[in-house]
């Protein structure tokens, strides 16, 4: 929560706030998907949007760019009202859909030229060529977009998004199903764009990606549960964590899950993360297990993932 914006009490708060919405609510067929969401995103930030599947991330992004009309709530995107000025928003926002949504039966060049023409760029052919060069797609420009691999499709989609020089990028799980190398390249590109002053709102499931964002917001079942830098979010979770290594971890895990004071037991390959919200209670709960001496116990810092899993388990599931 940004105090200066909250104090102003006006959605259009200052020139450096790019997204400023409050109370956004949306339901589909009686099921509330986004519930009273309020958030602000400053210019030039990479803002990570995290949350489990079906938590309302896509719906929120669609409301921001005018693809969905909120049931209630208000706000601005780039200073334009999201309820009444979606035409202006569309002109200045690049939205990368979760599913590849360029034309599979058009070549890379044809897709980019199409985008350039729709946005009315002065020299669509040249703009497309520059995008092709920038993306390193020069020797694939004639290939049909539908035949590209996941990583290349994603590169092309990003290229099409930034072609009309938007001020804000909305990326909906852009790296789903993409290999680690391509993910890393993609994030380098995102950081380069943010360095040029572009604001990026990106939804993701990956913790390493969350840690590459300037700020993150955690949304579950339509509600915003945490917001801030990664360190803030971890600190606010107030978790105490132990890391356990050694034999018989599966049996230990089952036993720990039944122990009061232990909120979370997660296996990470050859180690277990054991967390609790009350440090002293956790200490007492694990003491008998430590005394056995079968495994090695070590006090550890909670990770962002620990914090998120904790948030998720605390929030109620409205599907149930």
């Amino acid at each position: 929560m940004r105090p200066e914006a909250a104090a102003a009490g006006e959605p259009a708060a200052g020139p450096d706030v790019v997204i400023d919405v409050e109370g956004l609510t949306k339901s589909f067929g009686g099921r509330v998907v986004v519930d009273g969401l309020t958030m602000q995103v400053r210019k030039g930030l990479i803002y990570g949007f995290l949350g489990p599947n079906g938590s309302g991330k896509t719906t929120t992004i669609r409301m921001l760019c005018g693809l969905l009309t909120p049931d209630s709530g208000r706000g601005t995107c780039l200073g334009y009202d999201i309820l009444t000025q979606s035409d202006e928003i569309k002109r200045h926002v690049g939205y990368m859909t979760q599913r590849f949504s360029l034309y599979g039966d058009l070549s890379i060049r044809e897709n980019l030229e199409f985008v350039a023409r729709v946005y009315g760029l002065p020299e669509p052919r040249r703009a497309a060529q520059e995008a092709i060069d920038r993306l390193g797609l020069a020797n694939r420009a004639g290939q049909l977009a539908g035949n590209l691999s996941g990583g290349w499709k994603q590169r092309l989609a990003l290229g099409a998004c930034i072609l009309p020089q938007p001020q804000l990028l909305l990326l909906d799980e852009p790296t789903a199903g993409v290999d680690p190398k391509a993910r890393r390249d993609f994030w380098d590109e995102i950081h380069a764009l943010a360095g040029e002053g572009l604001t990026v709102l990106v939804s993701t499931h990956y913790m390493d990606e969350a840690e590459r964002c300037h700020e993150i917001a955690y949304i579950a079942y339509g509600e915003l549960l945490a917001q801030g830098t990664a360190a803030d979010v971890i600190a606010k979770a107030h978790l105490a964590t132990w890391t356990v290594t050694g034999p018989d971890l599966a049996a230990l895990s089952e036993a720990l899950k039944k122990t009061p004071g232990v909120e979370m037991v997660t296996a990470f390959g050859a180690s277990l993360h054991v967390s609790g919200r009350d440090s002293a209670r956790l200490e007492a709960a694990v003491a008998p297990f430590r005394a056995r001496g079968t495994q090695a116990w070590r006090r550890d810092e909670p990770t962002l993932e620990d914090a998120f899993i904790d948030l998720m388990s605390r929030s109620k599931d409205n599907f149930g």
Binding site: G66, L67, K90, R91, Y95, S101, G104, V118, Y119, G120
Partner: peptide
């Protein structure tokens, strides 16, 4: 084909 979403966010 899922291209509608992209077309709709274009001006």
């Amino acid at each position: 084909r899922g291209t509608m979403e992209n077309l709709l966010v274009m001006p």
